[in-house]
Write a protein that binds this DNA or RNA. Structure first.
Lengths: 192, 192
DNA sequence: GAAAACATGTAACCGGTTACATGATTCT
DNA sequence: AGAATCATGTAACCGGTTACATGTTTTC
């Protein structure tokens, strides 16, 4: 059910259309939660029906209209309730480690390719996340700035600190994954 | 599609019934891939239909029968092909970090409880995984021993090394998660 | 004789993916 | 005029969860 809460989180800042949200999912929130258009539009309609959002048609150009969604009090309450509820951890289901456990079945080349892909995957994300932290530090994050505009000034350090903290966690995870995969490459050399 | 491959991996060691597999998913493989009975039994039937397994009814007691599944050559080939195929990484979807990014919305107590639950969650797994490594080191893992019995002796170090390597990766990840959550608790104290 | 373990299923539901589909507006 | 962007959907499918359901065998 996190998609709904990610949407609520975004709409606490300002009203948005489905397309606006889609762009956010491709940029900021997308780093922790991905959602395609085919999921967003139906979710918005369902959330409006459930009273979490209020939709309003806005004219756009000559003939066009778009629907702008505003979070309701009920939506805010739902988001706060979710924030105060401990998460249920999903069962372990990890294809990377599943494969690693049977690496003797792969050809050495395939095993190396797999580990290198693992490194490349996390390296790429590492750079994106580091860039995000730089943005936060230099005040260049427009979404964060809009969020800050909605909270009292003395709350700013908290808001900023948690965003930063989130990315630091993802960076630490990525670094651990890269280190692990590098040990794997060394292990393959040893065993050859 | 990893459920099928986890099943194939287990059946490369020896033929098993659905129930045997279920027990394995609760014990060894379960640490990297969870599967409930409601998923295993239908999967086995489908895999038999697809020629990856061969099922045979075995009498059990007076009136009972059970179905024992053996991996076919086609099943072995499929497993090897999977092992040699690079994994597609799923899109980011991480409720823990999603929540962390909006931690200013939670009450300080709820935020602390969340982080402590995060620590407890990984601490528990950490102990399970460390225990697994001890088992591997002392030769006390019966599943691993059965697997070793099916491979030539000079291959044993590889097989053992990859199992150990897998658990080391999960341990490193858990340690990173715990360290991150502890930094979070400290951050909450600072911001108070 | 009762409890624990062994054995196997069905069905409704849910969140997410992939592919397909369409049209308006703005910018160059 | 054409391209990029804005805007919004439908539908089939897939893997997984939860709840429901039943019967046998072995062990104490």
């Amino acid at each position: 059910m996190s998609l709904r809460h990610a949407i609520l989180a975004l709409l606490t800042v300002e009203p948005m259309t489905g397309y606006d949200l889609l762009k956010q999912f491709e940029a900021s929130v997308g780093h922790v939660w991905h959602a395609p258009d085919s999921q967003i539009y139906p979710a918005l309609r369902a959330m409006e029906k459930d009273g979490l959002l209020e939709g309003a048609d806005v004219t756009w150009g000559q003939r066009g209209t778009k629907r702008r969604y505003t979070i309701t009090e009920s939506g805010r309450a739902e988001f706060r309730a979710w924030m105060d509820t401990p998460l249920a951890y999903p069962r372990d289901r990890d294809p990377v480690h599943l494969k690693a456990a049977y690496l003797e079945w792969a050809t050495p080349d395939a095993a190396r390719a797999q580990l290198r892909a693992h490194i490349a995957h996390y390296q790429e994300r590492l750079e994106q996340w580091r860039e995000k932290i730089r943005e936060i530090e230099t005040g260049g994050s427009s979404m964060l700035n809009r969020r800050l505009a909605t909270v009292p000034e003395h709350e700013h350090p908290r808001t900023i600190a948690f965003k930063r903290y989130t990315y630091e966690g993802m960076i630490a995870r990525a670094e651990a994954e890269i280190a692990w995969a590098e040990r794997g490459l060394a292990l393959l050399d040893e065993l050859e």
